[in-house]
Lab assay of single mutants.
Amino acid sequence: DENEERIRAFALYKGIDPEKARELWERGEINKDDEEKAWREYK
């Protein structure tokens, strides 16, 4: 689903483990601007 892809995109963008990215996502600790930037680059 799209959230999974967004988490993966963010992990790649930040160079972090996707599981770590998922934890940040679930806790609401992902910066929305960074997340959008990562998503645009990923697509």
Results as ranks from 00 to 15, higher is better:
17 D>V: 06
6 R>P: 00
22 R>V: 03
38 A>E: 02
12 L>N: 07
19 E>H: 08
17 D>I: 05
42 Y>N: 03
6 R>M: 09
39 W>G: 02
42 Y>V: 04
37 K>W: 09
23 E>R: 08
16 I>N: 00
34 D>Y: 03
5 E>R: 07
29 E>V: 07
11 A>T: 01
4 E>V: 07
19 E>D: 13
12 L>D: 06
33 D>I: 09
4 E>W: 13
15 G>F: 02
41 E>M: 13
41 E>H: 12
3 N>R: 15
38 A>Y: 06
34 D>R: 01
13 Y>Q: 03
41 E>D: 10
2 E>Y: 14
5 E>K: 07
17 D>Q: 08
10 F>L: 14
9 A>D: 02
31 N>P: 12
1 D>E: 12
16 I>E: 00
4 E>M: 10
33 D>L: 09
32 K>T: 09
14 K>G: 03
43 K>F: 12
24 L>R: 02
9 A>E: 02
40 R>K: 13
14 K>Y: 15
9 A>F: 07
4 E>S: 09
13 Y>P: 00
36 E>F: 07
3 N>P: 08
7 I>T: 01
33 D>A: 11
24 L>P: 00
43 K>L: 14
22 R>K: 10
36 E>R: 05
2 E>W: 14
33 D>N: 08
33 D>Y: 09
5 E>G: 05
30 I>W: 10
38 A>R: 02
28 G>Y: 03
5 E>P: 04
31 N>C: 13
12 L>I: 13
41 E>P: 02
29 E>A: 10
36 E>I: 08
5 E>D: 10
30 I>A: 03
3 N>I: 15
20 K>S: 11
7 I>A: 01
11 A>M: 02
30 I>F: 11
21 A>N: 00
15 G>M: 05
1 D>K: 11
33 D>V: 10
3 N>Y: 15
24 L>T: 01
31 N>W: 06
7 I>R: 01
38 A>Q: 03
29 E>I: 07
35 E>K: 08
2 E>K: 09
34 D>E: 15
33 D>M: 09
15 G>I: 01
8 R>A: 08
6 R>S: 03
43 K>R: 12
32 K>P: 14
26 E>I: 13
17 D>K: 09
3 N>A: 14
3 N>D: 13
13 Y>H: 04
8 R>H: 10
23 E>A: 10
35 E>N: 08
39 W>D: 02
27 R>K: 13
20 K>E: 14
32 K>H: 09
14 K>R: 08
11 A>D: 01
20 K>R: 13
24 L>N: 00
9 A>T: 02
25 W>M: 07
4 E>I: 08
19 E>W: 10
41 E>S: 10
18 P>S: 08
11 A>F: 01
18 P>W: 14
42 Y>F: 09
43 K>S: 11
42 Y>S: 04
17 D>T: 15
31 N>G: 09
16 I>H: 00
22 R>Y: 05
6 R>V: 05
21 A>D: 00
2 E>R: 10
16 I>A: 00
34 D>G: 02
10 F>D: 01
7 I>V: 06
22 R>H: 05
11 A>W: 02
20 K>G: 05
40 R>C: 15
33 D>P: 04
41 E>N: 10
2 E>G: 09
37 K>M: 12
14 K>P: 00
26 E>Q: 12
27 R>T: 08
22 R>F: 06
39 W>K: 03
42 Y>R: 04
41 E>A: 14
35 E>R: 06
14 K>F: 15
19 E>S: 11
27 R>P: 00
26 E>F: 12
5 E>V: 06
19 E>A: 13
22 R>E: 02
27 R>L: 10
20 K>L: 14
25 W>D: 00
14 K>T: 12
7 I>S: 00
29 E>T: 05
25 W>C: 07
13 Y>W: 14
5 E>Y: 07
3 N>K: 15
41 E>G: 05
8 R>E: 04
17 D>A: 13
11 A>K: 00
40 R>S: 11
26 E>R: 11
39 W>M: 07
12 L>S: 08
37 K>P: 03
12 L>P: 00
2 E>C: 15
2 E>L: 13
22 R>I: 04
9 A>I: 08
42 Y>Q: 03
38 A>T: 03
24 L>H: 04
17 D>Y: 03
1 D>W: 13
24 L>W: 04
23 E>W: 10
32 K>F: 10
21 A>E: 00
25 W>V: 04
35 E>S: 09
26 E>V: 12
37 K>F: 08
30 I>T: 04
21 A>H: 00
3 N>M: 15
39 W>N: 02
23 E>P: 00
42 Y>A: 04
32 K>Q: 11
17 D>W: 03
20 K>T: 14
34 D>I: 06
6 R>Q: 03
28 G>P: 00
15 G>H: 08
28 G>V: 01
24 L>S: 03
26 E>G: 07
7 I>C: 07
8 R>W: 14
23 E>S: 08
16 I>S: 00
2 E>P: 12
30 I>E: 01
35 E>L: 15
13 Y>V: 03
15 G>S: 06
16 I>C: 06
5 E>T: 06
35 E>D: 08
21 A>C: 08
23 E>K: 07
19 E>V: 12
28 G>H: 05
9 A>Y: 08
2 E>H: 11
36 E>A: 08
27 R>A: 12
37 K>D: 09
10 F>R: 02
5 E>A: 11
33 D>F: 09
24 L>A: 06
19 E>I: 12
13 Y>N: 02
30 I>P: 01
28 G>R: 05
9 A>K: 05
41 E>T: 08
1 D>M: 11
1 D>I: 11
29 E>R: 05
39 W>L: 06
11 A>P: 01
30 I>H: 03
16 I>V: 05
39 W>E: 03
25 W>N: 01
10 F>A: 02
30 I>M: 06
8 R>C: 15
8 R>S: 04
25 W>K: 03
43 K>E: 08
8 R>P: 00
27 R>N: 12
25 W>H: 05
22 R>W: 07
21 A>T: 01
16 I>G: 00
5 E>L: 11
16 I>F: 04
37 K>L: 12
